[in-house]
């Protein structure tokens, strides 16, 4: 059985495996952006943060083993941590800049995409060639099946599980905790939050920094888990797509999870179909996630109606 071709079964299996492998970066970035946008700010720069995270995680994981005599079991985890910290650094810049008077967050965000990717490319030059130790995964497939295909499909990274758990946790945080209430208040009506005695600036700053931390972790997943390599094209726009996902998910962390799984799986459609011999129109299949992003953007940018769930003060310019 295990040595026979799985044929058509490969398509759903491939998409399932692709979902489990490929959706974590979307998940982390969209959760980070969800947190940021709940506080009323937009951080388009997460694409740059994602790249910084990917580069710094890979660099630390590699240097840890080759230069600082760390064990290859530990250095990737240090890399993940440093990726988060690098993300926080990027977030700090965005938080400070975008809260200056009459500064537009979108403009700052675009600047941060360019800055983040430029910095990551510049610092990442020496790490393109070496191979860094990778994060381990849970081999769930070994418990369930003897087929090597199923086994490799069900190799699940602990980072992915962390992201999946984070989504309901964040939902609970927004709904049922005092800090969560403050964030929603700041995002929906800064004046009311100010009257409550909450510092709008501080809350937004913390949200942007925490969101960027998550995006940095998403970057670490790209370079240390899947595809597991540092190149300048590693993100290929995933950070931007994840920002769009938040709108698609109506600023709800649980829906961010579904949306991320959906987009992660969509990346596998083209290759999986071609592998079973459906080879016409693969450009269309490959473009599927982008077409979806576009459609979502078109459907949601109507000037006449406001979206349900959108934070009231989202993207408004500081006075």
């Amino acid at each position: 059985m295990a040595t026979e071709a799985i044929g058509w079964l490969g398509v759903p299996l491939g998409i399932l495996a692709g979902t489990l492998r490929g959706s974590a970066p979307f998940l982390f970035v969209s959760l980070g952006e969800c947190l940021t946008e709940k506080s009323g700010k937009i951080n388009l720069g997460l694409e740059g943060t994602l790249l910084m995270g990917a580069m710094s995680a890979y660099a630390i994981s590699y240097l840890g083993v080759s230069q600082w005599n760390m064990s290859p079991a530990i250095s990737p985890w240090i890399g993940v941590l440093v990726a988060g910290l690098a993300g926080m650094g990027m977030g700090l810049i965005h938080a400070w800049l975008s809260q200056q008077p009459r500064v537009n967050d979108i403009a700052v965000g675009i600047a941060m995409i360019i800055f983040g990717s430029g910095l990551a490319f510049f610092l990442g030059k020496p790490f393109i060639q070496p191979q860094a130790p990778q994060l381990p995964s849970f081999e769930l497939g070994k418990l369930l099946s003897s087929s090597p295909i199923v086994q490799s499909a069900l190799q699940i990274s602990p980072l992915f599980i962390l992201g999946v758990l984070l989504a309901p946790a964040m939902n609970w945080f927004f709904k049922s905790t005092r800090p969560g209430l403050f964030i929603r208040a700041v995002g929906d009506s800064p004046d009311a939050a100010l009257a409550m005695g909450v510092s709008v600036k501080k809350v937004r700053m913390l949200c942007i920094i925490a969101g960027s931390f998550l995006a940095g972790i998403g970057g670490a997943y790209l370079s240390l888990v899947y595809p597991g390599s540092w190149t300048e094209r590693i993100s290929s726009g995933q950070g931007l797509m994840a920002v769009a996902l938040v709108i698609f998910a109506r600023w709800n962390p649980i829906q961010c999870l579904w949306a991320s799984l959906f987009f992660g799986g969509a990346q596998a459609i083209g290759p999986a179909l071609q592998a079973v011999g459906i080879d016409k129109g693969y450009y269309l299949f490959n473009a599927a996630p982008y077409v979806l992003t576009l459609l979502i953007m078109i459907l949601t940018c109507s000037p006449k109606k406001t979206l349900s769930g959108a934070p009231g003060a989202l993207g408004s310019i500081n006075g």
Partner: peptide, 13 residues
């Protein structure tokens, strides 16, 4: 890179 990894995995499948 992601699509290249995905393609290699699909072939291995």
């Amino acid at each position: 890179p992601v699509k290249e990894a995905e393609a290699t995995n699909s072939l291995a499948d």
